[in-house]
Design a protein around this nucleic acid. Structure first.
Lengths: 361, 361
DNA sequence: CGATAGACTGCAAACGATTGCAGAAACGCT
DNA sequence: AGCGTTTCTGCAATCGTTTGCAGTCTATCG
């Protein structure tokens, strides 16, 4: 079917080995034959067969990126970054979707190493630590965004404690005292860390933590909505909500729209991680940016380093943190302490707030 | 490193060939040895090396999906569908991002066939027809969403003419006569077809086409915004806009927000292709759904068919169409013909519209 | 009891590359 | 001229499978 090394060798009247050496540029052939072979190979349209090569060398020039899904905007940009970087180096990216499901992750991992991938960047579910650890003996692995506590794999993390702290502090500085938090599962690194950042900011400001304001769990838009309702139905509802879990944002937004709660006038809203439409939304939504682009780049750097270092690319560093930063848009606003809560909700009786509402659309 | 067939054979005291036959289940081995080998293989944790197998058989169990990007929600769901389907059949999906760039597409294509992929589903740029055609001799290929006119490849398309027709007709039925259209590049199938559907619906309704209402091109949110402005600045602005180009939506939405144009009261808005947040947005955005899920499934069906049929899976059909459907949400509204346009814009003077505006947030 | 079909099994050659080893050629040096 | 180096080339083994062919064994039948 396609032209093989043998064909090239025959056409050039040399042995296959010579052809191989000439084309891989080992410098073990004379300048003349080298050039001749390169020319002939090009004329014949020879393309080395990576499968055959891989069998011999044990390498595939394939690097896998295993993420949970593609709906998450962060994963999208990470995928694009990784793809671009790898491609420039002659690797092909294998993008896999694990669905945040341990079983699926496990399956995918085994097929990937079966395919003798040269490297792996993975957003671990956290439930396959032993397997990951075992695989890391065969393949350089870098964890991204989440840590798997059962392993000592090199991990590139967003600085979630700092990000959550930053976000919370921002709200506090705006005068908010009751800040609702919607945050991810507490058995994930990011879930725990974001909560801790939130708590720290409160403590520093001398605000006592109120657990009725905190919702942690595995969110989808729908459950995000229920939590938002719970928060808003509180006797003393929060004046700001920090949605530190990406998936919940849509639900929260819907509830506020349903109830005609004007953002930021009636409620300040701050989200974690960017989405392409956040800055187009009215009001444009302020966020804590986890630096997806930087994270991906760093992960690639580390992976390449390990791949070069052939097994002992261990520099002693286990964990890299990429700083988060606050991006202020229009969804957070100075909080004017209201009259001390009496009975019932005072919202609908406030002409000011409703006027503000009609100014916004 | 990992356990090979040879190891299994040795442990079972049979030849490698027998081991191979037993494990691949060719039925050429005795029941007893077959079972014994399966057991031993499992005990040893044997996993066949797809590279070696691929070298011999010429197959890789890899199927590639080449799309433009991952920000497009349709591509996301397609990727997830394809991944799920293939995985169930023991294939690994290779997801590649071509960026709608012919050069990049071309490069990716060659590395893919180098890797001896078993099949390819591609959203073609349309600029690499000859290459695709050539490759299709080696690999089963199915085009998705776009057709490459330079080839006669089997193609799974959304029914864009129908979808655009459906959408436009819907707006007409609501009483709209001046309907702005923002549509994709006219050198792509979908761009042309959507325009034609729009035109047909107008013609059927006896509305004369007004080219100042039509904007075609390669859009990003920003250019989408400029077009929206142009439309709204027209002496007689449209009462509805059909955003038949996915990328432009955000821009249009921003302009309407900026100008306090209430949707659907001041302007009806209909979009093509769904986005996860459309139904959470207030007002929820009505769309023409191109059936991404069905498209992906059909593409996989066709590809598998071709892969089975070993080269002549050609059933004579060249083109499959997946029906589009209208999903009505809240962004379109009955149009009450306004008083004939006088001088200036009457919008700000209408108390009704501003009241409506303040009801919405 | 011997022939023969049938059911299994093993040998060895592929697949397309890479690579250690050794031979050949060319060259310089004494 | 003879010899040691250096430089290049080819042979052949190898990676882990699959598979055509031929051989072995058993069982069955005449």
């Amino acid at each position: 079917m396609s032209v093989t090394l043998k064909d090239v060798a025959q056409a050039a009247r040399v042995s296959v080995s010579t052809a191989s050496r000439a084309l891989t540029g080992t410098g073990l052939t004379s300048e003349r034959t080298q050039q001749r072979l390169v020319r002939i190979a090009r004329e014949l349209g020879y393309r080395p067969n990576p499968i055959a090569r891989g069998l011999k060398t044990g390498q595939s020039r394939l690097v896998a990126l295993l993420v949970h899904n593609l709906t998450n905007a962060s994963f999208q940009v990470m995928a694009e970054v990784v793809q671009a970087r790898l491609k420039a180096l002659g690797y092909q990216m294998l993008l896999c979707i694990g669905g945040d499901d341990p079983q699926q992750e496990s399956d995918t991992l085994t097929t990937l190493v079966d395919h003798r991938i040269d490297g792996l960047i993975v957003v671990p579910t956290g439930k396959n630590g032993p397997q990951l650890k075992a695989l890391s003996k065969d393949v350089p692995i870098v964890c991204l965004v989440r840590r798997d506590d059962a392993t000592d794999l090199e991990t590139v993390l967003a600085d979630d404690p700092q990000g959550a702290y930053l976000g919370t502090r921002h709200l506090i500085e705006l005068g908010h005292k009751r800040i609702g938090l919607i945050v991810g599962r507490q058995d994930t690194t990011s879930g725990r860390e974001r909560l801790s950042g939130y708590v720290r900011a409160l403590r520093e400001a001398g605000i006592t933590r109120d657990d009725t304001l905190i919702h942690a769990g595995h969110f989808e838009p729908e459950t995000g909505a229920t939590c938002a309702r719970k928060l808003l139905d509180l006797p003393r509802p929060p004046s700001a909500i920090f949605v530190a879990n990406h998936e919940a944002t849509l639900g929260v937004l819907r509830v506020t729209a349903e109830r005609n709660i004007a953002i930021p006038d009636d409620l300040s809203l701050l989200c974690y991680e960017d989405m392409p439409w956040f800055e187009w939304h009215r009001p444009a939504i302020s966020i804590v940016d986890n630096g997806a682009r930087d994270l991906a780049n760093l992960a690639v750097d580390r992976l390449l380093h390990r791949m070069d270092a052939k097994g002992n690319g261990n520099d002693g560093v286990r964990e890299y943190r990429v700083g988060a930063k606050l991006i202020q848009r229009d969804s957070c606003r100075q909080f004017d302490a209201p009259a001390p809560a009496r009975s019932g909700k005072s919202k609908s009786s406030s002409p000011k707030s409703s006027a503000a509402k009609s100014a916004k659309v």
